[in-house]
Design a binder for these strands. Structure first.
Length: 359
DNA sequence: TCTGGGGTCCTAGGACCC
DNA sequence: TCTGGGGTCCTAGGACCC
């Protein structure tokens, strides 16, 4: 840099050069926090959101406040169980349109920042790509802006790629960390090596079990595994990808282009199992019409239609068919869904039905 | 712990074609 | 005619994530 009189007018900085960083912004207990926003009297109370807000119904917990989690309430848990563990909790119905609206405010806050790329991962998560010399400062600024504009708290994981940024967030969360955490190649081994493979983003209990059967229990062991061997045993793409996960390798470039959905569907679990096939047909047609209304609103014709049936107690099957021609027509879609439904021959009681359109 | 609803991507086998 | 190899599409299921 050329030094001279003009330099006295520039801000003095001791930072090094700017680098490419990935920030993973994650709202704290988003759904519950959004509910507290419009019902401030709930602050500090155990709140459980899920289903229609009736803990005697078939439904699961979408989110619980930290006060409810202290009683062992977890997301994905049946509301009935949550009520047993925390009888004093306030149970609220899920209000998706409202959450979408609040989420949009948050994402608009992120997008308003110049020089950053935003990739939304759901209502309460987004990756931000940025060139900066001080990612911690940027993370702090983002958290402050979100709080000021929406009154929502967030945690930010900082990484040299998306995988590490995402995993870093867990160490930034309230009760664990202090709002931000940095995970890069420099501290990957120290932080992750000894952890079970389920700590990785993309490895669930099933895959962890398969890996354990092959003597791979920890992240370090996965990182040292032979990609070709895992390819042969776990799949040509998945096997090598798991090894990459173990090494902390992931996508570096955050994509700002808007997401184009691949499919759109609806499904319902019935409070009472359906025992009459005529009722099953009626419900499938109704679901298909809801899907048709959605895709018509987006003007995206369905090329395929899939039907999902969960028989009691819990065995789930899908059937699907490519349509003769893509369609937006509700009658055509409903008829096609009913055709696909007839490929199910069992007449056991039905617990759940779903219809999905693929583009 | 009797297990929601909305999605995505990968895999494997069979059909079909050249 | 007892029988190859590659490519692509379709379909069902599995696994994972929010």
């Amino acid at each position: 840099m050329i030094t001279g009189p003009v330099c006295h007018a520039l801000p003095v900085t001791t930072d090094g050069p700017a680098h490419h960083w990935v920030l993973h912004v994650d709202l704290d207990q988003f759904i519950a926090a959004a509910e507290v926003l419009r019902r401030p009297e709930l602050a500090g109370r155990p709140v459980v959101v899920g289903g229609k807000g009736d803990p005697t119904q078939r439904a699961v917990v979408a989110t619980a406040t930290y006060e409810a989690r202290a009683f062992g309430v977890r997301s994905g848990m049946p509301l009935r169980t949550a009520a047993k563990r925390c009888p004093d909790a306030v149970f609220l119905p899920a209000d998706n349109p409202y959450y979408e609206q609040v989420s949009e405010e948050v994402m608009a806050t992120l997008r308003a920042r110049p020089g950053t790329v935003v990739e939304v991962m759901g209502w309460d998560e987004a990756f931000v790509g940025a060139e900066t010399a001080d990612p911690e400062e940027l993370a702090g600024t983002i958290r402050r802006e979100i709080l000021e504009r929406t009154r929502l708290h967030s945690s930010v994981g900082i990484g040299d790629n998306m995988l590490r940024a995402k995993l870093a967030t867990a160490f930034a969360k309230p009760g664990v960390g202090h709002g931000t955490y940095r995970l890069t190649a420099a501290n990957w081994d120290a932080v992750m090596a000894h952890r079970p493979t389920t700590a990785l983003w993309g490895i669930g209990t099933r895959t962890a079990r398969k890996l354990a059967e092959r003597g791979i229990e920890t992240v370090a062991q996965l990182a040292a595994a032979d990609p070709a061997a895992l390819a042969a045993e776990l799949g040509p793409a998945l096997g090598p990808w798991y090894v990459q996960l173990g090494r902390g390798i992931g996508r570096v470039q955050v994509e700002g282009t808007p997401w184009v959905p691949r499919s759109r569907g609806h499904e319902t679990t019935f409070q009472e199992n359906l025992t009459e096939w005529a009722d099953v047909r009626t419900e499938v047609a109704a679901l298909a019409r809801r899907v048709a209304a959605d895709i018509a609103a987006e003007d995206r014709p369905a090329a395929r239609v899939g039907v999902k049936v969960r028989f009691a107690p819990f065995s789930t099957y899908t059937r699907s068919a490519t349509l003769g021609a893509p369609t937006l027509d509700a009658d055509v879609l409903a008829a096609a869904a009913l055709d696909v439904l007839e490929r199910f021959t069992s007449r056991r009681p039905v617990r759940l039905l779903g219809v999905r359109a693929e583009f």
